[in-house]
Amino acid sequence: MIEIRNLSKSFTLHNQGGVAIPVMAGAHLRVAGGECVGLVGRSGAGKSTLMRMVYGNYLAGGGSIRIGEIDVVTAEPRQILALRRAVLGHVSQFLRVVPRVPTLEVVAEPLLRLGVPPEAARTRAADLLARLNIPERLWRLSPTTFSGGEQQRVNIARGFAHDYPALLLDEPTASLDAQNREVVLRLIEEAKARGAAILGIFHDEGARDRVCDRLVDVTGFTPGMAA
């Protein structure tokens, strides 16, 4: 489902003397449907960079990232937008939403964008929020005022609202208590069971061991860091 070949990337800092920093070279990776692959490697090795290139918010320097029929590296913006709407989900560590929008709408939004009827979208959103133990009295409020853990759970609910065939998870269990961590791990297992291809970063080793089928060390893709 996700197939990365010979991916490379460097940053050029034009305002700091035009210095070019190579951050990735020769990255290969494959995630099949129903599989969860965990990225590992020491901090700064490029786990997040790789995830962002797959999602399309970092530009690749060379190589290819095929997700279904689309190569993210060469795709037009609107193809990536369509991919993100229907195929590729992303749970990031930060919740970025328009202020003042109620939590229920934030979670239902990916489904509304896909044209799911509002009733059905809100029902699904309510189910997820309930599962993730967000008290119902908060659903009408904007999540911008919530605690870090609550925001993280809203973010997860939003990321799992639609059954994406491919999912990117960036530290999905960070800052969660044991009970909610368990809910998230179950959500991941369910996604795998329905055939989703999952690529994730998990610092939580217990979680990593439980859901990941394989681990890939990105240090091997990092120029000058290969041990």
Binding site: T12, R52, G56, N57, Y58, L59, P77, I80
Partner: peptide
Amino acid sequence: GLTDQVLDDPQ
């Protein structure tokens, strides 16, 4: 380009 790409990885 994509909004988040231009803001997160400006070229």
